[in-house]
């Protein structure tokens, strides 16, 4: 998505700057007859036509991309819960009632995981850049974020909503396990 946006933007920027530079050429066309032509070209052609075309295309593209990222129900979805607090993250697991961890969220690799995000004090935000976008942890609300780690391993996570003096160090780790280790974790054999 980034490369589409960047190249599109660069093209538009260059177009505007080129038009601006060419505007400084020395042959003026400031007659009443030219006025109508200028309005047609600049206001209708570029102002309306060009802007609407770019924006409409972009919006549709963005909405479709967003739809693809939404959590859909599926048979093998794992549900975990993440509770933000000043300045710690606490995690619990639907598949292992009573099991709770701090700082490290354990998930199975290769399976979709729904993270139910909430907060016990101020607003935080759950963000694991390599797995998904961010979603806020808001007291009294539960927001669900779909993540999926393709490979086992550790993924760095941070809180991304300013929360006071401990904000900079408000981090956590998402640990994705392979099938066997995930089973062991659920049975309480991995701490």
């Amino acid at each position: 998505m980034w490369w589409v946006l960047l190249s599109g933007s660069a093209a538009i920027f260059l177009l505007v700057i080129t038009l601006l530079l060419f505007a400084f050429r020395r042959d003026a066309s400031d007659t009443p007859a030219a006025e109508a032509r200028h309005e047609r070209v600049w206001i209708w052609g570029l102002g309306f036509g060009f802007s609407i075309m770019v924006l409409a295309g972009l919006t549709v593209y963005g909405v479709l991309m967003g739809e693809r990222l939404l959590p859909r129900p599926g048979p093998d979805v794992v549900t975990v819960r993440a509770e933000g607090a000043q300045w710690v993250w606490r995690f619990s697991y639907a598949d292992a009632p009573g099991r709770a961890t701090e700082h490290i969220l354990h998930i199975p690799a290769g399976r979709p995981v729904d993270v139910e995000i909430t907060s016990t004090d101020v607003i935080h935000s759950f963000w694991v850049p390599r797995l998904a976008g961010k979603l806020d942890a808001i007291p009294g609300h539960v927001n669900v974020l779909r993540i999926e780690a393709e490979m086992p391993g550790d993924y760095a996570g941070v809180s991304a909503e300013f929360s006071g003096v401990g904000y900079t160090g408000h981090r956590f780790i998402v640990r994705a396990h392979n099938e066997a280790d995930w089973g062991a974790f659920l049975r309480g054999e991995v701490r």
Binding site: S51, L55, T59
Partner: peptide, 28 residues
């Protein structure tokens, strides 16, 4: 809201092109 947010670039675009058009027709 995403559509509304991109739509807001339309009147901005009109103003920008009207300004460039003004320079274009004058002797800057």
């Amino acid at each position: 809201f995403s559509a509304a947010s991109t739509l807001v670039a339309l009147p901005t675009g009109i103003q920008i092109f009207a300004w460039i058009g003004t320079i274009w027709k004058g002797r800057p």
